[in-house]
């Protein structure tokens, strides 16, 4: 057997809760609108990077890494590699950091002194890309284990949007949908089929790489994100996933219905998006979709951590029975799609 597995998972959520009403009160120019109806998001967590013990992408990533290691069989110094996947590399008082790598800083903080370390950046598919790479590194024998971590202090884009957007059709509209969090997973080689990543396959369709851009604002400053929602979420874009997924399954003579997925986790863009993805999946694969897990309501879209935060919360709530097969479907700017399927039994929160 040559597979990797999710060996442990940990998270960090800021304690500050911001209701959607409170966020919309920050709109400076745009008339208010029913954001809850459009997205299903009633609240999100917001990191406080001005607190005495600041919450930012780095400190949250370190907390999530420690949380995962508390449940892991591995001590920090036994880790072979640390991969950090944040989009929002915010640290040290709203600095957007480019080097050293966040992975280096996390590794130093947690005491993973011998681990190789590097950052992966792939928009909201970042953690999925980190898991994909670590899966291949474990299967290829380059490493025995590793940590994939992402801390997202991403809500500054929501506040930039609130300052700058003109109305609900503004390119910054989607920026209102984000929440802060951090998640970390420890991975190693699978020892049986009770805990195993069966496959993780990813694809970038670069024709659409310009449809969602995150960068500093040249209007009121800080960081911002500009999304062409109409093009990004056009049916043809969304059907990239079932097309790619069914082709990969067909290569080994399988179909979606044959795979026995128990749960499906989509990117947490909003409740309508998750429903739409499930509808498109059902039509394309011609089979009912597995039970859909989300955290959209209370935690919103936490960017690169979203699928793993959903998994973490579902485990915490006891919603995933031992031996469940979980399917994750990324949807990220790039545009990136694909799928990860894993059986989880020993993973506890």
């Amino acid at each position: 057997m040559n597979h990797s597995r999710l060996e442990a998972i940990g998270s960090y959520l800021p304690t500050t809760v911001m209701g959607t009403g409170e966020l919309l009160e920050r709109l400076e120019k745009a008339p208010t609108f029913d954001f809850v109806k459009i997205t299903g998001m009633t609240e999100r967590r917001v990191a406080d990077d001005t607190a005495e013990v600041p919450e930012n992408s780095l400190t949250m990533a370190v907390s999530a890494a420690r949380d995962s290691l508390d449940r892991s069989a591995y001590a920090p110094q036994e880790l072979d590699v640390v991969i950090s996947c944040s989009i929002s590399r915010m640290s040290d008082g709203r600095r957007l950091q480019f080097e050293p790598s966040f992975a280096h800083r996390v590794a130093e903080e947690i005491g993973a002194r011998d681990a190789a370390r590097f950052d992966v950046s792939n928009a909201c598919a970042g953690m999925m890309t980190g898991v994909y790479l670590l899966d291949r590194m474990i299967r290829g024998g380059a490493v025995r284990n590793g940590l994939v971590v992402s801390g997202e202090h991403i809500t500054p884009i929501a506040f930039t949007a609130a300052r700058e957007m003109d109305d609900s059709r503004d390119p910054q509209f989607a920026s209102l949908s984000v929440g802060d969090s951090a998640v970390a997973v420890v991975m190693d080689r699978a020892t049986d089929d009770r805990d195993m990543i069966h496959e993780v396959e990813l694809m970038t369709c670069s024709q659409y790489s310009h449809l969602c851009l995150g960068m500093p604002s040249d209007d009121t400053g800080d960081i911002a994100m500009y999304t062409d929602n109409k093009e990004m979420h056009a049916r043809e874009r969304l059907s990239l996933w079932p097309s790619f997924h069914s082709d990969r399954l067909a290569e080994r003579g399988s179909r979606f219905a044959d795979e026995g997925y128990d749960f499906i986790i989509h990117h947490q863009v909003g409740s309508r998006f998750v429903d739409l993805m499930n509808t498109i999946g059902e039509r394309s694969f011609e089979t009912p979709m597995p039970q859909s897990l989300t955290v959209v309501d209370k935690l919103a879209n936490t960017a690169s951590t979203s699928h793993y935060l959903v998994l973490h919360q579902a485990l915490a709530e006891g919603r995933i029975p031992t031996g469940s097969k979980v399917l994750m479907v990324p949807a990220a700017s790039g545009v990136v799609t694909g799928f990860l399927s894993a059986t989880v039994s020993s993973l506890e929160v």
């Binding site: 989009i87 929002s88 590399r89 957007l96 950046s121 792939n122 928009a123 694809m203 970038t204 369709c205 670069s206 024709q207 659409y208 790489s209 310009h210 969602c212 851009l213 995150g214 960068m215 960081i223 994100m225 043809e236 059907s239 990239l240 097309s243 790619f244 990220a332 700017s333 790039g334 545009v335 990136v336």
Partner: peptide, 21 residues
């Protein structure tokens, strides 16, 4: 730019997997 990956923007210029469909 922090999103998407710079790699995706470079891939588009090179012409790598523009649209799978």
């Amino acid at each position: 730019i922090v999103e998407p990956s710079i790699a995706a923007l470079i891939s588009k210029r090179i012409g790598i997997n523009l649209d799978y469909l």
